[in-house]
Nucleic acid binder design. Structure first.
Lengths: 127, 127, 127, 127
DNA sequence: GTGGTCTAGACCACA
DNA sequence: GTGGTCTAGACCACG
């Protein structure tokens, strides 16, 4: 799986990394049980500091996307609907919805975008 | 309209402010044409520095939510579907969708959440 | 002659006023000898403070575009190539040129724009 | 590259800074890929506050002249003909042209000045 | 060491 | 009285 980092982005590199790994899991380029590269290996590949990779892995670990094993390194998990997943997602969606409402987007238009985004991630055709 | 700032949050104060004003516009507690408090006034009310408020207003201005009027101060605008609004929104929704997919959420479940969030912002009942 | 003021612009109102009067003289909607409205009259028409109009007139007077007579009010002059007109114009053109060069604009392209802008002001067809 | 700030000018320092950097890029004293001094370094060199430099850099970043790179600091970009570059330039040129017309300058004279300014920036001989 | 955030306070331009 | 500019200094996030 290819990861692209934009060091000019306003978004911190560790967040970019986390996001891309989440995207990778979503569209099955990364599957549960699969090992992730070691912190130092990935850092070297991307030309970034290994602390940065470490921070990204820690975030993913906190949210249940991966497990970090001292011996086996990081492996992808089957994410469970963890304790605070739905509230977190809802907060993000509410802000999206608020922006949509401000821009006069109707419910149907909004749902259309939501559906398209879901399909894009799932890698399937929108129904 | 009541604005709450959490100075202990990791999210910058000026972003919290911007978000809350966007929420306020979405659910019509702030209506187009309405003037916002002056930067110094709002800063005093919130117990923060006026530069911080000014930065929030600048962000809102850039995104077309408000206008800084030389004579009337900041006023709420009817946000137009500005040049890069849809791409921005899509990026946010895609990350939401990716997280949902990772957590085995089906399209219907995801859309259910989206619908609920839209209704919550619009201040109407979900259909 | 119709003057439009945008109080939401970042540009001060008195500069907008001055600019529009210069445009008016350039394309002959205002001709030498013609009287301008009184400061208070124009301020009332535009719904702005008369100090603002006064400042705009002062700028125009400094640059030789108008004369302010205590009795007759402001009248349009035939602008002479005053002492510091060319240097002022050159400074502005140099900054334009610098931006053009930065954006890879060739000399021909730049001159094409210059010619078009001149023609637009003169109200004639570009040669 | 030498930068001179006139703290007594009516023009804000951050704009003076921005302008001089644009001039520097135009005449190749600053080349794409080249790193700019850090905000604090340049501020110290110029004897001004680093916030002021930061604002200048932010403006340049918005207009595509430089990029703020998380790892390398600010670096000069090859400015692309961004979305609103031509309209911005045209507005400036139109005001120049209007002033020229007011002062009886002919099209040929005007273009002569434009050509000279372009050549001065490009650092080449006028044709 | 870099830029970003926040605070505090002074001064000015604008209207 | 409004926002904009500039300064000064502290603290933090990032890499």
């Amino acid at each position: 799986m290819i990861i692209k980092i934009d060091s000019r982005s306003a978004q911190p590199i560790y967040e970019q990394l986390r996001d891309q790994i989440v995207y990778g899991i979503a569209n099955a380029r990364l599957v549960p049980g699969e090992p992730l590269p070691s912190v130092r290996r990935l850092a070297a590949d991307l030309g970034i500091n290994f602390h940065t990779v470490s921070k990204a892995y820690a975030l993913l670990c906190d949210d249940g996307y991966i497990a970090i094993d001292r011996r086996k390194g990081a492996i992808v998990l089957q994410a469970e609907g963890g304790q605070n997943f739905v509230p977190k997602l809802t907060a993000q969606l509410e802000f999206c919805a608020a922006q949509a409402v401000c821009h006069q987007m109707t419910l149907d238009e909004f749902l259309h975008h939501c559906r398209a985004c879901y399909a894009a991630q799932k890698g399937e055709k929108a129904l």
